[in-house]
Design a protein around this nucleic acid. Structure first.
Length: 562
RNA sequence: CGGGAAGUGGCUCAACUUGGUAGAGCGCUACAUUUGGGAUGUAGAUGUUGCAGGUUCAAAUCCUGUCUUCCCGACCA
């Protein structure tokens, strides 16, 4: 590719409507352009990178034995009705009608269609296992798109689905995909963690996420400083040790005037916050539910929903609170006439402080024996410094962007959609499914978030739009132009993707642009070409090196690892 | 959906408080001088000031509505 006369453009200043580093660099490098909130066009340079990412994914999928298909984006809504997902996907589904007012959706996810496709081929256990996948656009009406390509409303996703006769088969298929995913992300040079995750709307049992580690990540990753434990905060288990042989004192009512927050109360009474229990007045299924957790903990809604088997928990309104004797600021479990859910950590606590359900009063020396409760479970977030549930080490947090997700779906979709097979005993059984997603755009954004400097992005060789660029210092110097073109032709003939910057610009402009778009290796053809000397400069290095043209071939082979 | 900010030339912004008919830098065109890290000079071109109403002799500026974008939250495979 020769730059002169091409579509190539760059911007010198940050876009005012992009906040993230990657969003800005992508826009400034002319790779993408915003069309609307969470909607982008990929321009030539950006599409080339996206294609490189898709190509790696395709190679690894094919290598893992998966077969590629292509599903439509425009889908009659009835396909989503069978499993009740019009309801569960809710507002995040883009809905539309045709001219006859028939309902359609822009596909937000494709479990149903893949299940439907599998019905064509699956009759008996002999027809499995197999895995099919596609790389196509997904549409999701995100309430708040943000961070460039990280949270968008239309995006390229690779989604694969495995079909097996039983759990054992699923385990194998899952492991094959897991290996393929590791290969994909390793090849792209991403710093990632595989974490245990919530199964969410998709349903199913096991779910693991591939999280690119970056500060602007929207998920919190819980990691252990001692072992390889890794988990999404949403589902990270809290372990708490019971302190044994503690003498339990008698309950005592104390006055705590105008002390409504747990910090205030503990300061006033000179008690460690960890020796207190606070109440959260919530609404679940239109019922008042009071959650009790240790004073310094925060409620984890994902866990709480799961424990109660509800899809949504919100803060309770005044009216709902008035149905009990709970008093905000002074709510405690003792003699409370509402549904009580306690965090299981409280079972290990002794002589703690809690609200007395009486304005201006709290109890001290409260113990579990002093009250009744309806449900107990793990309902709080892990904190940094907590104990690792696997090895007992200390936990710490990192932020991550979810770039891939692998799921054991089980029979949720096959049962509802009638995807069954006959086993050796002529018995009809539901097919056991797995599903596996990767967000191509998020990969691009994550790589840039992880690899950039003051001059621009630094792309790894595997996904860079061009592996090598050649900069002609002075386009009026025929010798420079001729030799640069010669190098360009030679490299191109060898199958290397080369960019020739032959624009009639000052050399500084060309250097800045090549740095901005992150080409891994720059070859500069300047004055010294008359002595057969060119410069080579890897994007990651600070300084260039002069070499004889005769050595260039070896240098490049070496650099590209060929 | 709640709270906040902002929409002015291709891009980034000023002018708005105190109404008088729009300006800078970058980019673009031409010429000259430059030529190894985003050149300099001279001369140019480019705007229904998001849109629709209203107030006024007069609106980028004041008022009302509306659309769009961004940020915080809610939400979210």
């Amino acid at each position: 590719m020769k730059l002169k006369g091409s579509f190539f453009y760059t911007l010198r200043e940050d876009a005012k409507d992009e906040e993230s580093k990657s969003g800005n660099l992508l826009v400034r490098s002319g790779m993408i352009k915003k069309v609307g909130a969470g909607i982008y066009m990929y321009l030539p340079l950006g599409l080339k990178v996206l294609d490189n990412i898709k190509k790696i994914i395709k190679e690894e999928m094919d290598k893992a034995g998966a077969e590629e298909v292509l599903m439509p984006s425009l889908i009659p809504r009835e396909y989503y009705e069978a499993c009740g997902r019009v309801e569960s996907l809710g507002d995040s589904m883009f809905k539309l009608e045709d001219r006859y007012h028939k309902p359609y959706a822009l596909g937000p996810t494709h479990e149903e269609l893949f299940t439907y496709a599998a019905k064509n081929v699956i009759r008996s256990y002999k027809d499995m296992p197999f895995t099919i996948y596609q790389q196509a656009d997904k549409f999701r009406d995100e309430p708040r798109p943000r961070y460039g390509l990280i949270r968008v409303r239309e995006f390229v996703m690779k989604d694969a689905y495995s079909f097996d006769r039983d759990e054992e088969g699923l385990d194998k298929s899952y492991q094959i995909m897991r290996n393929a995913y590791n290969n994909i992300f390793d090849r792209m040079g991403i710093d990632y963690k595989i974490v245990k995750a919530d199964t969410g709307v998709m349903g199913g049992s096991l779910s693991e996420e591939y999280q690119a580690v970056t500060d602007i990540g929207e998920d919190v990753l819980v990691l252990c400083d001692h072992c390889d434990y890794a988990s999404n905060l949403e589902v990270s288990e809290v372990v708490s040790k019971d302190e044994e042989n503690i003498k339990e004192f008698d309950l005592e009512l104390v006055e705590t005037p105008d002390k409504e927050t747990i910090e205030d109360v503990c300061n006033y009474l000179n008690i460690d916050v960890k020796k207190s229990v606070k109440a959260l007045l919530m609404k679940a299924n239109d019922e008042l539910v009071v959650f009790f957790v240790r004073g310094d903990r925060e409620l984890n809604l994902t866990k709480a929903c799961k424990l109660l088997g509800v899809s949504e928990i919100n803060f309770a309104g005044d009216e709902l609170i008035a149905t009990s004797n709970a008093i905000p600021g002074y709510t405690g479990p003792i003699n409370l006439n509402a549904k009580i859910v306690i965090d299981r950590e409280i079972l290990t606590m002794h002589n703690f402080c809690c609200g007395a359900n009486k304005k201006g009063y709290h109890y001290i020396n409260a113990n579990v024996k002093d009250f009744k409760y309806d449900v107990v479970g793990d309902i709080v977030n892990v904190k940094e410094g907590d104990t690792c549930p696997v090895c007992g080490g200390k936990l710490y947090f990192k932020k991550g962007i979810e770039i891939g997700n692998i799921f054991k779906l089980g029979t949720k979709y096959s049962e509802k959609l009638g995807l069954t097979y006959l086993d050796e005993n002529n018995k009809s059984l539901p097919v056991v499914m797995g599903c596996y997603g990767i967000g191509a755009g998020r990969i691009l954004a994550s790589i840039i978030e992880q690899n950039n400097d003051e001059f621009g992005m630094i792309l790894p060789k595997s996904i860079a739009p061009y592996q090598v660029c050649i900069v002609i210092v002075d386009t009026k110097d025929d010798k420079q132009v001729e030799e640069a073109n010669k190098i360009y032709d030679e490299l191109t003939n060898k199958g290397i993707d080369v960019l020739l910057d032959n624009r009639d610009e000052r050399v500084g402009v060309k250097f800045k642009d090549m740095d901005l778009i992150g080409i891994p290796l720059r070859i500069t053809v300047g004055k010294k070409i008359s002595d057969n000397i060119v410069e080579v400069k890897p994007r990651r290095d600070k300084d260039f090196k002069e070499i004889n043209i005769s050595e260039l071939d070896n240098y490049i082979n070496d650099f590209l690892g060929k």
